[in-house]
Structures are given as C-alpha cells and as structure tokens.
Nucleic acid binder design. Structure first.
Length: 569
RNA sequence: CGGGGUGUAGCUCAGGUGGCAGAGCGCUGGCUUUGGGAGCCAGAAGUCGCAGGUUCAAGUCCUGCCACCCCGACCA
C-alpha cells in the first residue's frame, strides 16, 4: 500500500475526549472514528486490525470443530418473547417496528435465534453434538458507553453456541471452547487471566471469564499468587471473622454529634474503621434490609442480590431511615429494630471486640460494645466486597485484587433456552429431551482496545506483528532524491512479492512527520531509506525493542521477512 | 439512572465586568526545505450545540432542551 493513496489520516493533537490509552491512540492514529456515543466506524487500517483478529479467532474456532454461521441483526420480537427476554432484557435492547407495526430488536446476543435455527433442523441425538459460531455486530443500549471500543453500544463479537444431549457431553464442549479460548488469547498476544465467574440470574452451571488486568476495565478480579486461584471478585467467598482476643472493656455512651460517616466517626473517636460496626439500610422490593458490616468494608451488592434473591433493591433514602429508626444515617444500629426490618450480619462482624456501634440514638454512639454482652448477632452471610489481602478461598494466602477487562466469557447454559423454545431431540429411547446448551463470547472490537492497552508507549501503539495493520513500514525520507526514491520503490516491490503486509510511506512530508506517524501507528518493523543509500544501506527499526540496525539494501526485505515469520509462530 | 464537566473554524483551544469572531495545527496557492510532527509569503474557512428570554446590543446573562466526556451501579 502506498500511503500517499491510502485513506489513513492521523492527528497531531491528542483527542479531547479520550482518557484510556487505547481510546486515545486509536482515535489519534486514525483507526476509528466516533459516530455517536459508544458507536464507532473503522477506517481502512482499523478494519485491517479487526480482520486480523477475526481471522485468528476463526482459525482456532474451526480447529476446535466449530462451524461458522451468520445470523441476523434484525430479530423478530416473537423469538424473544418465547424466552421472556423481550421484557427481561429491559432497556438495553434496541427495539424497532417495521412498516406493518411488527416488532424487532437489534440482536444484543443470539441465544434465541440460534436455538430457533437449531430446533428447525435437529430431531435426533444422532445429529449431536455440535458447536456453531458467528462473527457479527451486536447492539446493546448500554447505560454508560465508555473508553472508545472498550464498551460500545454497537460492537463486533464472536459468539458461539454448543448443543449437546446432556450435561456431561456439554461439559466436553465447554472444555473444548475453554482450550480454544486459551489458544486464541495467546495467539492475540493478550495476557489474559481465566477467572471463575458468577453464573448469575440465568441459572447456568459453570462460567469463566477471560480478563486482562487494566485500570480501564470494570470487572474486579481477585487472584492468588501462591495457588493460582482467580475469580471475579463478586463470587469470592469470605469466611467468618476471627475471634479477637482482647480484654472486654466496659460499654460507654459517647456524644458524637454530626458523625454521620464512618470516616468522621473514626477520626472523631480516634478509632480504626475496622473497630466500627456499620449499618447499611437497603430497600429490597419495598422491604427494609439492614446489613451489619465492619466499618472498613463495603457491601458487595452482587452478593447481597444472591442472599436476598432479588436484584431489585436500592439504598434507603434519608427519609426512609428516619421514618424507620427515628434518627439519621450513621446512628442506626441493631437495637430495638422495627420488626419489619430484616437484619443481615456480614461474616466480617463475627468475633469483634470492643467495637463502636450505634443504637438508634441521635448524636450518640457506644464504644467498647461486645457481642453477647451488649448486643446479639443474628444470622451471618457473606456480603462484603473482597479487598486486597483477604484470604484465598482455596489456600488462605492473601489475595491480590485488580480491575479487569472482560474479553471473553464462556458459559454452560443448560436448558434455559431449549426448554421454553421447545428445542428437543429424540434420544435412543425415542423420548423427547431438551438440548443442553453452552454459549461462548469474545468481544472482538474490545480485544482491539485491549491489545493497545497492553502494547503502547508514550509515542503510540506497538502492535504485535500478528494483528498489525501493516507488518512493515518503508519510509522514504526524501522522495525528491531520486536514489532514495528508487531504492524505496524497489524495496516496496520486493516486500509485496514476498507477501509481506507492507505500507510504503511515500508522502511528501518531513522526516519527523513520518517517524511520528510510524510510532503512533505502531508498525512492528520500519525500514528507513535515507542518506545511507549511497553506501548501499538502509536502517531497520524495531518498534517493540527500539533497536536500530543498518542493513544492506539487497538483504533488507529478507531480514524483515524472517523476523516477521518468527513473530507469527 | 444518580453525580461532575464540556460544547466557539476540519482538529486542539482562547475569548474578565455584555459592545466588529480569534490563535495554533490542518487545508489551498507559491517559493525554499527533507534523519524526529519544517520555514517564509498569500489565501479560504464559523448557524459560537439547539430553542426561547432579558437587552439598544448576547459567544458572554437567564430558562429549557440536546449532544459528548468523566465518576458510581450492570455487560463482551
């Protein structure tokens, strides 16, 4: 490709609205163009990267026996009504009507449609198992699109679905996909972590996420360096607190005006937050629920949802707190609690000694409160967010906690879709049985961002060779110099002949301009044709190592080809 | 959906207390340049997010709306 003819335009200024490195460099480097919030178009070089990622995924999917299909973007509402998801999916579903008033959605995922496809062809156990997959655009009206391609409302996804006779067979499909995913992320040069994930409201059986550790992700992952355990933080179980060995001091009532927050209380009383018992009031489906938890911990609302069996809850308002307890937030506690209030004790509160606690008296707290003597526990639950240093559920070593970005998710679904959609097969006894399903997703456009997050420096992107828009950039420093120009042209022809993905920067621009673009756009290799052509030499530059070497013109392309071939192994 | 912020040339931004619409980059033409985003000269380029209001006068003040970004709760 000759750059002077290529539709690729970079910017000298940092884009105003981009924070995450991937968002910034993809915009600045002219790989993507924002169309609306969470909606991006890909330019020719941007789409080249996407296609390379897709092809790596395709190859590994095919290798594991999955077969590619292409389902539709426009999904009729009827299918979604069969599984109840027309309502359940809620406002994230983009919906529309045709001229006859019939309802459709833009597919956010394709369990319904794939199940519909499969039930129309599969009748017998003899046809099972199999895995189908597609690469397609998905639409989700996200509450908050973020960080460029990282969370878009329109995005490219690979989604696969497995169909088996029973759970055991489905586990095999699941394992097949798990291994495929491990290979895919390795080939994409992404350093992912496989974490156990919540099976969530769908009631699946097993679920794993593939995440990279980055500040620009929204999942919280906990992992253990000594035994290798890793999981989405929301499913990490925390044990009952240890019995503290401390002399019980006498209970004392202390005037603590305006100490509404744990922070204020801790400073006012000069007591560590871990010595404070905090009461957090939620309203769940209209009913008050009080969570007692240690002051240095936060409630994990995913865990709370599991315990109370609904996701329909929120923090109580100041008025509600006052109406129930006759005092404001910060002064409520597990004493004389109205019978309508359900009290849940977090595991962390067990065994505390000489704690600070409020007993629903305005402007007063009690210090040196002790369980049994001054208050009594109720039932214990695991409700706290995991924090760094908490014990690993497997080996009890201190856990590490990081933000993670989810790139892939594999899920053993069971019969969640096949039963309501009547996707049955006849078993050997001639009986109808529901298909046993699994689903497996990879966010392809998100992977593009993830790669940039893992491979960049202050000058721009450093694409791994396997996904680089071009593997080699040939820069002719001074196109008006005939010798330089003809050398560059010759090298460009040779590179094309050897089948390299090469871009030839023949633009009329200063050297610095071309170097800056080369850095920003992230070509793994660069050949610079400059003054040294007089000595029969060009410079070879490696974007990843920063290494520069002079090589003879005749062998330059061969040298690069060998390096590229090595990178692709 | 709650909280915060931004909206002026293609891009990045400046425009106290209301008084002629600005800069840098980019773009067009010309000359000179070519190893780290070149120099000089000459130009083109605007519904100041939208609507209403206050005022002799609004980019600037007021009201409403919209869009986008960031922080929190959900998803690949």
């Amino acid at each position: 490709m000759r750059w002077s003819f290529y539709f690729w335009y970079t910017s000298k200024d940092d884009p105003a609205d981009a924070e995450a490195p991937s968002h910034k460099y993809l915009l600045k480097g002219g790989f993507i163009k924002q169309v609306a919030s969470g909606i991006y178009a890909f330019t020719p070089p941007g789409y080249r990267v996407i296609r390379k990622i897709e092809n790596i995924i395709r190859k590994e999917m095919e290798r594991s026996g999955a077969q590619e299909v292409l389902l539709t973007v426009l999904n009729p509402a009827e299918l979604w009504k069969e599984t109840g998801r027309w309502e359940l999916y809620g406002r994230e579903l983009f919906t529309l009507k045709d001229r006859h008033g019939r309802e459709y959605c833009l597919g956010p995922t394709h369990e319904e449609e794939i199940t519909d496809l499969v039930r129309s062809f599969v009748n017998s156990y003899r046809q099972l198992p199999f895995i189908l997959y597609q690469i397609q655009v998905k639409f989700r009206d996200e509450k908050r699109p973020r960080f460029g391609l990282i969370r878009g409302r329109e995005f490219i996804m690979k989604d696969a679905y497995s169909f088996d006779t029973d759970e055991f067979s489905a586990m095999m499909s699941y394992e097949t996909m798990r291994f495929a995913y491990e290979r895919i992320f390795k080939k994409l040069r992404l350093n992912t972590l496989m974490v156990e994930a919540s099976v969530g409201a769908i009631g699946g059986i097993s679920s794993h996420e593939f995440v990279i550790l980055t500040d620009y992700g929204e999942a919280k992952v906990a992992y253990c360096l000594s035994c290798g355990y890793s999981a989405n933080a929301e499913i990490v179980k925390l044990p009952l607190g240890k019995q503290q060995e401390e002399e019980e001091k006498s209970l004392q009532k202390v005037y603590t005006p305006n100490a509404e927050t744990i922070e204020e209380l801790s400073q006012f009383l000069k007591v560590p937050k871990s010595k404070i018992l905090k009461a957090v009031l939620y309203i769940a489906q209209g009913e008050p629920v009080m969570v007692m938890i240690k002051g240095d911990r936060e409630v994990d609302e995913n865990k709370l949802a599991q315990v109370i069996g609904t996701e329909n809850f929120r923090l109580a308002t100041d008025e509600e707190v006052y109406r129930l307890f006759g005092t404001q937030k910060g002064f409520i506690g597990p004493f004389n609690v109205p019978p309508s209030v359900k009290v849940l004790w977090d595991n962390s509160t067990f065994g505390i000694k000489n704690a600070v606690i409020a007993f629903n008296e305005p402007d007063y707290h009690y210090i040196n409160a002790n369980p049994e003597r001054d208050f009594s526990y109720g039932d214990f639950f695991d409700l706290a967010q995991v924090t760094e240093g908490d014990p690993c559920p497997k080996c009890a070593s201190p856990l590490k906690v990081s933000k993670g970005l989810e790139l892939g998710h594999i899920f053993l679904l069971g019969t969640r879709y096949s039963v309501p959609m009547k996707a049955y097969y006849k078993d050997q006894q001639g009986e109808d049985k529901p298909l046993f399903m699994g689903c497996y997703g990879i966010g392809i456009s998100r992977c593009m961002s993830a790669i940039v997050e893992q491979y960049h420096d202050e000058f721009g992107i450093k694409w791994p060779t396997v996904v680089a828009p071009f593997e080699l950039d040939i820069i002719c420093l001074n196109p008006s110099d005939q010798e330089q120009k003809s050398t560059a042209e010759k090298l460009y022809m040779m590179a094309q002949e050897l089948g390299l993905d090469v871009i030839y920067d023949d633009r009329e621009a200063s050297a610095g301009f071309k170097f800056a673009d080369a850095d920003l756009c992230g070509f793994p290799y660069r050949i610079i044709v400059g003054k040294k052509v007089k000595e029969g030499k060009v410079e070879l530059h490696n974007r990843h190592t920063g290494e520069k070497t002079d090589v003879p013109v005749e062998s330059a392309i061969q040298v690069v080809k060998e390096l590229i071939d090595k990178d692709k192994v």
